[in-house]
Nucleic acid binder design. Structure first.
Lengths: 115, 115
DNA sequence: CCATTACATTCGCATATGCGAATATAGCGT
DNA sequence: ACGCTATATTCGCATATGCGAATGTAATGG
């Protein structure tokens, strides 16, 4: 079975957790460093790092080290599936109020965020 | 937290399993009875029923009893998220060859299925 | 070199999940 | 009533997963 086949399952599984869903939704507005994520989620830093590692292994995010900080952002999708998945993420905040609240606490939050 | 919030996680989790992903993809072509699903997946009937129950609880499928048979089909989406999720499902067969193979074994398979 | 800051990983434990096997239910035909 | 077929549920077990706590690493500044 091809690697991309496993990838579909892994991506769905990665989004099947509240904390990771929140992180992914936050990153929809642009890249963020781990400490921003920790501040908004109000979870222990190791917890955030663990979930970020999970998302990294799933191929959903990449990170860019700059000095002491590590900036995470969405991986740019290479498959139609990945692209649709990100689109579905953008709709989530209509159903999960917590996601909109997270976004509004972000420095990168724009007025049109979450409609 | 609203019921719909939980629903997002539950739907992602429901698709994070190979067997359930295969069932959902098969149902994309129209309703099927459990025995059709068992035949194509080549898994024990209780396994198929268990995963169908999981998909039912997640709100992704509904069933219609007709005599001895039980026909399953996609729940018609009531949220934008649900709709996008189904669209992402339709793309999966490009990445997971097994999904296309499943579809071709179906009585409901159309020539344009999976492109 | 040492302290601090930002982040990552490991460990132990509780819970969730998937599976095979066995059993139960439910609707037909005779 | 009886048996057959289609489907559902339960049980026991192995594995996966999430979490908090502790520890490790890496880059920067003094």
């Amino acid at each position: 079975m091809p690697k991309s086949a496993r990838q579909v399952e892994v991506m769905f599984r990665a989004l099947a957790d509240r904390t990771r869903l929140r992180i992914m939704h936050m990153l929809g507005g642009g890249e963020l460093c781990v400490c921003d994520i920790v501040d908004v989620l109000k979870v222990p830093q190791p917890t955030a790092s663990r979930h970020l590692a999970y998302l990294r292994r799933a191929g959903l995010v990449v990170c860019r080290k700059q000095g002491l900080w590590c900036y995470y952002r969405w991986t740019s999708p290479k498959t139609a599936f990945h692209e649709k998945l990100l689109e579905s993420l953008a709709c989530c905040c209509q159903d999960v109020p917590q996601l909109s609240r997270d976004s509004r606490r972000l420095p990168t939050c724009k007025p049109d965020c979450c409609r």
